[in-house]
């Protein structure tokens, strides 16, 4: 290759605003952010509920949630693939090889991270707040949003970790998305593809772009969180 420097390649990709690259980047962000949003909408209240309520099998639920944080993306991908495949139980939805399938797979990966952290953080906070909230007349159910809101800075960290996992994984989206050009090709699958073509500088250049994007999202969230934390104590 004439241009063998991955950093030059990354710069060229970013500055050139290549149409295809913009499409891939946008889809990556859309898929991962949607997955994180969905996982947060489910995981935060469910984690908080597990923290506040005592029920049979609770210890098992907590253990499973913690264990699922280490779920290999390929396994999540395979599970979603079998679920959404035409031969699978949800085959009639026709979602395999669509961005929606990728969102579902990534949600599965991110949900345990957010739910487990939410469980931990809310449980600690509940310890501190329980008497006061009960005294003020908040039921356990009503305490859930209150505790989540008060724990928002700690939870933001978990949500960002979830975003990191979603945007970095390739195993799940490759299986359920199929890496279809212009339809389900995202940053990580594009990197895998370029690597297998032996196009290492381009692959690494794309990797740098991905890193940059994730860093941007994290920095934005961090700055907003820090600012608010300073203001709200």
């Amino acid at each position: 290759m004439v241009d063998g420097n991955p950093f030059a390649k990354a710069l060229e990709l970013i500055l050139g605003l290549d149409q295809v690259l913009v499409g891939i980047v946008t889809l990556s962000l859309q898929v991962s952010l949607t997955a994180v949003l969905t996982a947060a909408l489910l995981g935060l209240p469910i984690g908080a509920a597990v923290a506040l309520y005592r029920f049979p099998g609770r210890a098992l639920v907590v253990t499973v949630l913690n264990a699922l944080m280490g779920l290999p993306p390929v396994v999540a991908g395979l599970a979603v693939y079998l679920l959404l495949s035409r031969a699978g139980p949800l085959g009639s939805w026709g979602l395999l090889f669509t961005p929606t399938a990728m969102v579902i797979a990534q949600t599965m990966l991110v949900f345990p991270i957010i739910a487990a952290l939410s469980r931990q953080v809310v449980e600690d906070l509940w310890e501190e707040y329980r008497e006061q909230l009960q005294s003020l007349g908040a039921s356990r159910l009503r305490a859930i949003p209150t505790l989540l809101w008060d724990a928002r800075f700690s939870l933001l960290t978990g949500v960002l970790a979830g975003f990191g996992r979603a945007s970095a994984e390739v195993g799940a989206v490759l299986i359920v998305g199929g890496n279809i050009d212009g339809v389900t090709r995202v940053m990580t699958t594009a990197i895998a593809l370029e690597t297998s073509k032996g196009n290492l500088p381009l692959a690494l250049g794309l990797g740098i772009v991905l890193l940059f994007l994730v860093a941007m999202v994290n920095a934005t969230a961090f700055l907003i969180g820090e600012g608010a934390k300073r203001r709200l104590g």
Binding site: Q132, L136, G137, W149, G233
Partner: peptide
Amino acid sequence: PVLLRRSALSNIRYPLALR
């Protein structure tokens, strides 16, 4: 006292909302 991570005013409004 356990005060919520919000303004002083909102801290008082909170239990009133519960009621």
